[in-house]
Nucleic acid binder design. Structure first.
Lengths: 209, 209
DNA sequence: GTCTATATAGAGATAGAC
DNA sequence: GTCTATCTCTATATAGAC
């Protein structure tokens, strides 16, 4: 019985991990493939071999995390829907907490939350189409359930409020705050506090007359 | 009496205007000075002559708009404070509506709202320091007034809620929504609706128990 | 203050050996 | 699947003529 291969991830996986971290820090345009490959300690040509192009690499970084987060959100939503009178707070938690969980991942999940924030800001049409095509149904499911929770709320207002929630969530999770906070508690406590605060803030907002 | 000079803005101003629009569309790293100068119909070397470097050009794009927006916010805040019992909604409007007004500017104000959203996402330390040093006092004034409006709210929760508001505002104004809306009303009606929705959403959120 | 021309560096992508 | 070497393009910045 032979020994397993050397205890490092594959070239492809190392490129993905490093690219995610660098995209979070420097953005897509600001991250060169040379920086990625040197930090991943792989050859420059490996990116084009494994991903074909920089654009495809960006897409793959998204697919990896978004698949997991979207599935977690839908499972949590399904669970929240089980009770006879769906509780608004539970629906919001189903949306918020998988993002929180991501930013607590021991590996680079925290970086991805910032990558996601950048993706919104970039308004890259290719990326928007990819996200909308592949993960738009998740937002639509939440929108459907929220409409059920809040029958008095008109549809347009509901869409606005979902946008506000998404904006607040992305900002809070990516930790963009300009106002310096007093205490820098540990990461876990910080994120859990953020999630709890956002759930109560958003629940009140969704219920506003 | 001689004719006034040709009816176009100065080279410097044209560069600023075009740069703002391009930064909004392609980001800072994604916008080359060549693109700026060709679109502004000025010579490539003019950027370095007038601004010294690309970084300085970025800073100047911010200074131009942020000065106006911050002053408008502070004036509106001052006005909201005049009444004996300060009304939360008025404070929120003082924060939100100058951003709205910007995005309705006939000139490139709408672009700047997106530039601002990018600035948050970029997490560029140079830019963050510049913004915090020059405009941090505006957020602190709002935070002080909100604390006065909501004496039962603890300080940390207040900071979180301000972050949520800033996130929601930036998203909504930059029009990041992934969910397609039914109607595409005119820009003005769209923005005014957004502001009104956000004021009521945020007011309820800030008042949440 | 504006131009041309260029220095210098870095980018993404690919061909072809191993 | 990984490497070296290189093509081609584009970037920021500046020197020096006008």
């Amino acid at each position: 019985m032979t020994r397993s291969p050397a205890p490092h991830f594959s070239t492809k996986q190392r490129i993905l991990d490093v690219a995610e971290a660098l995209f979070a820090e420097h953005g897509f345009a600001g991250t060169s493939l040379r920086l990625v490959t040197s930090q991943a300690e792989v050859n420059l040509a490996a990116v084009n071999y494994h991903f074909g192009s920089k654009d495809n690499l960006i897409t793959e970084v998204f697919r990896h995390r978004m698949d997991a987060m979207s599935q977690a959100r839908l499972e949590r939503l399904e669970h929240a829907r089980k009770v006879p009178n769906v509780v608004l707070e539970e629906v919001l938690r189903a949306f918020i907490e998988p993002a929180l969980a991501l930013s607590l991942d021991r590996d680079g999940g925290g970086a991805f939350v910032r990558v996601l924030a950048r993706a919104y800001a970039e308004r890259n049409e290719r990326l928007r189409t990819f996200l909308s095509d592949n993960y738009g149904h998740v937002l639509r499911e939440f929108s459907r359930t929220l409409a059920h929770c809040l029958p008095a709320l008109d549809k347009e207002a509901l869409y606005w409020r979902l946008d506000f929630l998404a904006g607040a969530l992305t900002y809070a999770m990516a930790d963009f705050g300009l106002l310096r906070r007093d205490t820098h508690a540990d990461e876990k406590a910080h994120c859990e506090r953020a999630a709890a605060e956002l759930v109560s803030f958003a629940a009140a907002g969704f219920r506003a007359g």
